[in-house]
Design a protein around this nucleic acid. Structure first.
Lengths: 146, 146
DNA sequence: ATAGTGTCTCGAGTAGCTAGAGGTTCAAGA
DNA sequence: TCTTGAACCTCTAGCTACTCGAGACACTAT
């Protein structure tokens, strides 16, 4: 049996994060030692590693919750799993597309800066006036997290 | 003078967001009408449009606060402005690089799914075992928000 | 025995808003 | 003039996915 610290080290997840996952029901409540400390078995390590890996790939916790639920029913068809992964792929592609636009706009902006005074600064100028932009880099301020 | 609603429409910013910006000191406290409603002049519209545009380009509010402070001192050298913009460009490039890795990993994952049962699902398998991955798609779970 | 590290719970803080409750003000139509 | 409905006000809480701190208890090594 592992303590929470060892489990964290094994799965490369910080201790408070593990407690957080338990709190929101992503991990089941852990067994406790006589001194009330959490104890974990092999299953918990697998599950936590799964979560960690999915997080690395940018899956939101809700999607991970669904994936975990599905992986607990091995005899079901895997369409649902597939569509979650595809949705994540689409989301990632969308973010990339948007960031590429931002990148080129920022490059243009930075390249135009001649290094003079703020008064003549192209960066400030461009930020103040959308009309300077090459493209419509997003009318929407979407919340795009990693 | 504009009411908060008209200001919001003009700058494409939602009303609660404007109040939020005032609350965190990004916008100065607005004048009030006799009935205690906020009133804005031309300057406020410029400033809010600046903020909105910078947000579209992914600048965090703290950076925008700095940019606004700098744009209020037109006779200073614009090095600081330039370095904020360059930092933002670097951040965007970093996010793109990371997302491209995620994308290829997700594509591999999705492509391998044969559409059978969860038991044989490559998606679940790959998520459960990092060793299946082509690349190290990030040991770190950075908070990358756009 | 004691020092030092690990663990416990609980609450608050992060970014950047967004939504809701419950109340006031304003502009336009009857 | 009255009334309706939209827009406005303040305040609080919620969202994601954690992260940190306080103050107290547990465990390990010397």
């Amino acid at each position: 049996m592992l303590t929470i610290g060892k489990l964290g080290k094994s799965a490369h997840v910080k201790v408070p994060t593990i407690r957080y996952y338990e709190q929101i029901g992503l991990l089941p409540e852990a067994e406790r030692s006589s001194g009330n400390q959490r104890l974990y078995g092999r299953g918990a390590l697998d599950r936590l590693s799964f979560i960690r890996h999915a997080r690395e790939l940018g899956f939101p916790l809700d999607a991970i919750r669904d994936l975990l639920g599905l992986s607990d029913r091995p005899d079901q068809p895997c369409d649902a799993v597939d569509s979650i992964a595809k949705a994540q792929l689409l989301a990632v592609e969308g973010r990339i597309a948007r960031l590429l636009m931002l990148k080129s706009e920022l490059e243009r902006m930075v390249a135009q800066c001649a290094g003079g005074r703020v008064e003549d600064c192209r960066v400030i100028e461009v930020l103040g006036n959308h009309a300077h932009c090459a493209a419509e880099h997003g009318r929407d301020l979407q919340q795009v997290s990693e």
